[in-house]
Amino acid sequence: MIGQQSAIGTHGFTVPLDTDLVDALVHAATSIASDAAGDVLKALRLAEVLTLMQPLAAARPLFETSLAEEVAWAIRAAPSEAWTVERLARQLGLGASTLRRRLASEDQSFRKILRVERLKAGRSAIASGASSVAAAEAAGYHSRSHFARRYRENYGTSPKGRRIG
């Protein structure tokens, strides 16, 4: 019975089923099998399934990633949070120094990942029609001018979309 926690699995890979995951699987299968559905819709349906599976420990082998990507995923999930190395390291079960050292071994830094993910969130908010002030807040910037400066540095335009230079 789905609502009571069933599981599917072979070869040691067992995923607990719940109603949301089953619904996403059905929608994905229907879309992917349809000749009428476009590639964008098919990819979206598959992404829905993967998003629901990502937090499941049993699905971890599907999502083996670098530490930098794990950090990016955590920040991407809540870009406006008051992220610190210490807080994120605790969330990942690491010490702050270990997190910094392991990121450095991947030629990454916490600050760089935080900036990139926040700017992506701000860009997405703007693309969805948010004002630059709302986008700055959604991206975790307390200062609209600081957000605008970083946005220009990365994307070559102001958050309002005017090309610079």
Rank of each mutant, 00 (worst) to 15 (best):
M1E: 12
I2Y: 00
G3L: 09
G3E: 12
G3I: 06
Q4L: 00
Q5M: 08
S6V: 02
A7W: 05
I8K: 01
G9V: 07
T10D: 14
G12D: 05
G12V: 00
F13Q: 14
F13N: 15
T14K: 00
V15I: 15
D18F: 00
V26H: 10
V26K: 05
T30D: 13
S34P: 04
S34D: 13
A36C: 03
A37Q: 09
D39Q: 11
V40C: 03
V40I: 12
K42Y: 10
A43K: 15
A43G: 15
R45H: 05
R45V: 01
A47C: 08
E48Q: 06
V49E: 04
L50M: 14
Q54W: 01
Q54H: 05
A57V: 08
A58H: 07
A58P: 10
R60H: 15
R60K: 14
P61T: 12
F63G: 07
E64D: 14
S66N: 09
S66I: 06
E70G: 10
E70S: 14
E70A: 09
V71F: 04
W73I: 13
R76K: 11
A78L: 07
A78N: 13
S80V: 01
E81W: 01
W83P: 15
V85W: 00
R87C: 12
A89D: 13
R90K: 11
G95V: 09
G95Y: 08
A96D: 13
R100G: 14
R100F: 03
E106H: 07
D107K: 05
Q108C: 02
S109A: 12
S109T: 14
S109Y: 00
F110S: 01
R111A: 15
K112S: 13
R115I: 10
R115H: 07
K120C: 10
A121L: 04
G122A: 10
R123K: 15
S128K: 10
S132N: 09
A134Y: 03
A135G: 02
A135Q: 06
E137H: 09
A138D: 14
G140P: 00
G140L: 02
Y141V: 03
H142G: 09
S143G: 03
S145E: 11
F147P: 05
A148Y: 01
A148F: 01
R149W: 04
Y151L: 07
Y151I: 03
R152N: 01
R152V: 12
E153G: 02
E153K: 02
G156M: 05
G156F: 05
T157V: 15
S158L: 13
P159S: 14
P159L: 08
G161A: 10
R163K: 12
I164A: 14
G165F: 03
G165W: 04
